[in-house]
Design a protein around this nucleic acid. Structure first.
Length: 558
RNA sequence: GCGCCUGUAGCUCAGGGGAUAGAGCAUCGGACUUCUAAUCCGAGUGUCGCAGGUUCGAUUCCUGCCAGGCGCGCCA
């Protein structure tokens, strides 16, 4: 349990004891005591902790809130860490504590290092997190970039709080789009020797297809010797493999590595679709109509039933996806999390239905819907058309603003909010970007420690220094912020809200910068210097930890 | 028509049944002979989209409406 949580539960029991004492004396009369809430108030002058219990109890106790608060306060145990208690506002009980508990935070960080803030909440539950899963027929876009940042950091956060998360990229290399892609490459290949060769009406006109054809010509100059069908099959496999390679490289440069790139074509090759259809058939969940085979997904709350095998005998996208999710479940994952774009929200119902049809609970599958990213340039939305080959790719974005800024920018917003990404702002004011603010705090501390070492001053351990010398307001603020990490991290992971961590990082960096301006370290007398060295060294550990979760570099100097 | 998301400062966005609703950017003042001024200190702005409801208390929860985005395929 973290220092903060321990302190909170200690206070809560003190309040509960006080209430019980008041009940025993008959000062308060209620049928049942509500749960005691305790929070760190937004305003510092409202104390280290505050409880609204008196407001909640006022009605059942049939007394004014402030009166209830007064009775509770009178019955509070006097010993312990509580330095002062006040009743404020409509009836809040504000607690002011001695600082001792804050110093424990430094001892904890020293002991745990970058594992500080981690916990075992997930109890090792096997979670599969699938995200990006962009079609292997072209470069990734900015929504993919957003998904990559959110998914990757979510995986890191969940691992930190005790889940066993695997990340996966589903490669949709067996569908219509892959066929169109193959025909596009094939046509461009033909055109290298026969300019009049027709390009498919629905083909991808973008330049990269042309470039692929040229590469293919060098690799396989004899391709036209193959019959058309084999030629297209080759283009499909070769082309999607090329795209996967490119996507993999782009994501790696972005700091995202998947545990597994799962190929749809492997599902087909091993008969997984037929197998899962059999299961549904045996459960009586299929029926034939209009020449097609349907899955009774409405039986599990879906809007309408879904076609599983089309009237031409081919499978729909959902069939492969059911087989894929079945595969995930068979691999022992008990929680499946998918991150999708907003255009897929209508897809949730049928996949949850499928999960249930396979015998698992509805909540086994959790879908996070990310909202769109609009790119703005010169105040105008950048119009993108895949057909015309005009779009800003993920790689363009990363080249323009950098990995760290791009990731931080995406992570800094709540996943379900629509996002306007102002390219001018990101480029022109890259020095003003919050990510640099946080990184600069890390660099500044690194610099202090470096210069200390040059002077022969090492960072002492907590046990060697008098931590109670840390009395400056900015120091106490910093200690409180450090103490808040474990709870913040757990909340962020459980709510799937990475943006809580970017806020945390900016707040911590801001408090450090204020401290840096107000207080000196290396020039102070030995005792104080030692205590402050411990403080900043531990701040650096926490900054590094949080930046690591965000997938952002922690530079030693800038 | 039905479903999902959004509506908070000039802009981009946080927050959230409770105390005086916040941050960054932008604007305007200050602060470097001292560990990095990519920093700090200070200044101003709000009908929390609108209207009802629940509540001791609503910007937060509920309902309706308005506005914007997206989706409702034997596409993926």
């Amino acid at each position: 349990m973290s220092v903060l949580m321990r302190q909170k539960s200690e206070l809560i029991s003190a309040i509960e004891t006080a209430i019980q004492a008041a009940l025993d004396k008959g000062d308060l009369v209620v049928e049942s005591v509500p749960e005691v809430g305790l929070e760190v108030p937004r305003e510092k002058q409202h104390g280290d902790f505050a409880s609204n219990i008196a407001l909640v109890m006022a009605k059942p106790a049939k007394k004014a809130p402030r009166e209830v608060a007064q009775i509770i306060v009178e019955n509070l145990p006097t010993a312990g860490v509580i330095r002062d208690v006040e009743i404020a506002g409509p009836g809040f009980i504000n607690f002011f504590l001695s600082n001792d508990w804050l110093y424990d935070t430094l001892r904890t960080i020293e002991k745990e290092g970058e594992a500080y803030g981690n916990c075992e909440h997930g109890a090792g539950e096997k979670v599969l997190l699938e995200f990006v899963s962009a079609n292997p027929v072209g470069p990734m876009n900015v929504v993919n970039a957003r998904a990559a940042a959110v998914g990757d950091t979510l995986a890191r956060m969940m691992n930190a709080v005790g889940y066993a998360v695997d990340t996966e990229f589903y490669v949709n290399d067996a569908g219509n789009q892959a066929d169109i892609f193959a025909r596009s490459i094939e046509a461009r290949y033909q055109q290298l020797t026969n300019p009049d060769y027709p390009f498919p009406e629905d083909g991808y006109p973008a330049a990269y297809v042309q470039e692929l054809a040229e590469v293919l010509k060098k690799e396989r100059p004899d391709l036209l010797d193959l019959p058309l069908e084999e030629r297209l099959a080759f283009c499909k496999r070769w082309g999607t493999d090329k795209m996967v390679e490119m996507q993999k490289a782009d994501l790696q440069a972005y700091g995202v590595e998947f545990d597994l790139w799962f190929r749809e074509r492997d599902l087909h090759a091993r008969g997984a679709l037929e197998a899962v259809i059999d299961i549904l058939r045996q459960r009586g969940l299929l029926f034939e109509a209009e020449g097609a085979l349907w899955f009774k997904s409405t039986q599990f709350g879906d809007d309408k039933d879904r076609v599983i095998v089309k009237s031409d005998g081919s499978y729909t996208y959902v069939t492969a996806d059911i087989a894929y999710h079945h595969d995930k479940l068979q691999r022992g994952f008990t929680k499946l999390i998918n991150i999708w774009g907003p255009d897929h929200h209508g897809y949730i119902g049928r996949m949850k239905a499928a999960i249930q049809a396979l015998g698992y609970g509805e909540d086994t599958l959790e879908v996070l819907i990310l909202q769109y990213v609009a790119l703005l340039r010169d105040g105008q939305q950048v119009k993108m058309s895949k057909r015309a080959g005009e779009f800003i790719t993920m790689q363009d974005l990363v080249d323009e603003v950098g990995k760290d800024a791009a990731r931080f920018f995406f992570l800094n917003r709540s996943p379900e909010s629509h996002l306007d990404f102002d390219l001018n702002l990101a480029v022109e004011q890259s020095n003003e970007n919050p990510v640099f603010y946080v990184q600069y705090a890390h660099a500044r501390i690194s610099s202090i420690l470096r210069q200390g070492r040059e002077l022969g001053i090492e960072v002492p351990t907590c046990s060697e220094v008098d931590l109670s010398l840390l009395q400056h307001e900015t120091e106490l603020d910093l200690l409180k912020q450090l103490a808040a990490l474990p709870e913040e991290l757990l909340t962020a992971a459980l709510l799937r809200e990475p943006h809580r961590l970017t806020r945390y990082a900016m707040d911590l960096a801001g408090l450090f910068h204020s401290f840096y301006t107000a207080c000196h370290i290396l020039g102070e007398e030995e005792q104080l210097r030692a205590a402050r060295l411990v403080l900043v060294a531990n701040i650096r550990v926490v900054l590094r930890k949080v930046l690591g979760l965000l997938g952002v570099d922690a530079p030693e100097q800038m």
